[in-house]
């Protein structure tokens, strides 16, 4: 019996919520915490990561029949490192202040386990269509995760969102939230909230099943 391979659409949808890289798989935590003090750097980070993920997924999917099993990690790493360099240089050339703000976290995309795990799980086994759908889905999931953390931190810590002042300047803000401890606290609380919502939904589903039976 052939193993069921997820279709491109399933891959796409799975990446967003059911297999959300940050909330469900706990991958890519380093950027989730480091660049989420405000929305702008967080979204730049998502853009750079999505670019690398899409390119790496496409390339590994195109050459998947040529891969030798024991050399595949090497090929993945080489591909990812190349595209990260391209993303880093492009940012430095066209968005220099942002590139300075993100600093080492752009090159650190290389060791973002999220990307290498997508290469391993999906694109080295399936065709370019599924790989592309998967990369976009996972990127959207990553976007959702970073946006949620950055929203909480920027609004509480700075009183603004995407640089737009929401609460009056004189209003006291919780500076702790834009400091490193705030990142841990925000992500910890959001993880708890995600689990709580998941459990509540599961409970409701099993309740309604019990009811219908």
């Amino acid at each position: 019996m052939a193993v069921h391979e997820p279709t491109p659409l399933e891959r796409f949808l799975n990446g967003i919520l059911p297999e959300n890289p940050v909330y469900r798989q706990l991958l890519g935590l380093c950027p989730t915490l480091a660049v989420t003090a405000a929305m702008k750097p967080a979204m730049t980070m998502v853009g750079a990561t999505a670019f690398v993920l899409i390119c790496a997924n496409l390339i590994t999917s195109l050459i998947r029949h040529l891969l030798k099993p024991h050399l595949r990690i090497l090929v993945f790493t080489l591909t990812i490192a190349t595209f990260v360099t391209i993303a880093d240089r492009t940012l430095a050339a066209f968005a220099y202040p942002m590139s300075k703000l993100l600093g080492p976290y752009v090159p650190l995309i290389i060791v973002n386990c999220m990307i290498i795990s997508r290469c391993e799980v999906c694109s080295s086994k399936q065709g370019p269509k599924a790989a592309l759908a998967d990369a976009i889905g996972v990127s959207l999931g990553f976007l959702l995760a970073l946006a949620s953390v950055a929203t909480v931190r920027e609004i509480l810590g700075n009183g603004s969102w995407f640089g737009i002042q929401l609460v009056p300047e004189s209003f006291p803000t919780l500076i702790l939230m834009i400091l490193p401890p705030g990142a841990f606290l925000a992500l910890g609380s959001l993880l708890g909230l995600a689990t709580w919502l998941g459990q509540r939904r599961k409970a409701r589903v099993s309740e309604s099943e019990a009811g219908s039976a």
Binding site: L185, L187, L191, L193, T195
Partner: peptide, 15 residues
């Protein structure tokens, strides 16, 4: 609390 078990409480402790 049940929903904080695992990664969530670890994050908060790390904070």
């Amino acid at each position: 609390p049940e929903s904080l078990r695992g990664a969530a409480i670890t994050m908060i402790v790390a904070g």
